[in-house]
Write a protein that binds this DNA or RNA. Structure first.
Lengths: 193, 193
DNA sequence: ATGTACCTTACGACCGTTCGTTAGTAAGGG
DNA sequence: CCCTTACTAACGAACGGTCGTAAGGTACAT
């Protein structure tokens, strides 16, 4: 499908150069067509962008849901650490997560409303999935001492720091070291009684 | 000074719209001049950008150094939490930190090298200031159980998560809640023996 | 005091280029 | 026959940047 090919290349350019810096002619050239031909597949730059955005969101959401479905529910240490590994893997496997992060943090002004709506949506889903997991662990007394909400928010903080390191992302060794440090102290903080 | 005024407005536009999305004519209009007049103060867009970048870096560096100089050295809990508060305050007081974060994570491609050099510089300074502090606390047995490096990296992770929340930044209440959760668990993790 | 030279700052006009977008048209498949 | 896809051609608008020029201030010699 040509339109998928266009979206793939567009994702790359939006990710590297941002919305304003990505030009249709460059995208078209990499696909192997003239920029006017893009208009046979999309209404315009905004339409292309929003479709790329929507796809990225859908993929991230379904991948996240899939990870949570694969958990055994009774090993918080393994499942939480696994989620961090899952995030890193997801980021490195496709450009969609990096695109997503760029656009949700620094959206093009005239599309900020639409982007924020999608961002809030995905945010709430992940938060809920995590908090429910924490609650089951609390109910089973596998964790104690903090509310499910506090555990979730702090864990999302660890995820955020991984995101930043990935986006910054030239130094694989640094990422590993930072992940291990954050995780070690987070786990010690929540596992001790 | 007119050139300072230009830099202030430019900082705002670079922060909101990115390098490519910020136009000299818009900046000039807000300053109250024509875009050609900007060339009486700067060699071009790149020059203006790099000067704004340099100023932002200098200010952030000196503010950070100032904070560390004000510490009493023997109250890790207060000093560390104070640093998180300091970061939040710094972010909200000026646009420079947000500008800095945007440009170090998503630099314009043709200036990536220069930006990265400055970013690495500031990064190393902050890291060193923090790790030295942790080492003095370890030497005084105010903390135990982790290396200064691990403590530093994990704490920088907490700072990162604050950065993200600030950049994302529409929800003050969420920021507070997340800060408290991350801090509570981080402190528990490093203070317990 | 006055004229002269120079520098800074600003502006109108305009450069070439690229932007996103539209119109018209031809080829090909169902 | 129509619908999709791709093309050439061209559009107005905006981009960053360069000209020449003019106003204002300062410095200095006359």
């Amino acid at each position: 499908m040509k339109s998928d090919q266009i979206k793939t290349v567009a994702l790359k350019y939006f990710t590297i150069h941002g919305y304003e810096g990505a030009s249709l002619s460059q995208i078209a050239e990499e696909v192997g067509m003239k920029k006017q031909s893009i208009y046979a597949h999309f209404k315009g730059k905004d339409d292309l962008f929003l479709q790329v955005l929507h796809d990225a969101k859908e993929n991230e959401l379904s991948a996240t849901r899939q990870y949570f479905n694969s958990l055994n529910s009774y090993n918080p240490k393994e499942d939480l650490y696994g989620f961090l590994r899952f995030v890193i893997n997801l980021f490195q496997k496709s450009e969609q997560l990096k695109f997503w992060l760029r656009m949700s943090f620094f959206p093009p002004a005239h599309l900020a409303k639409e982007i924020e709506a999608e961002a809030v949506d995905i945010d709430e889903v992940v938060h809920e999935l995590l908090e429910n997991k924490f609650q089951t662990w609390l109910d089973a007394s596998l964790l104690v001492g903090f509310s499910a909400r506090t555990l979730t928010l702090a864990f999302l903080g660890v995820v955020d720091s991984i995101y930043l390191e990935l986006v910054y992302g030239n130094d694989e060794k640094r990422l590993e070291e930072k992940l291990e440090a954050s995780w070690k102290i987070y786990w010690k903080g929540i596992s001790q009684r």
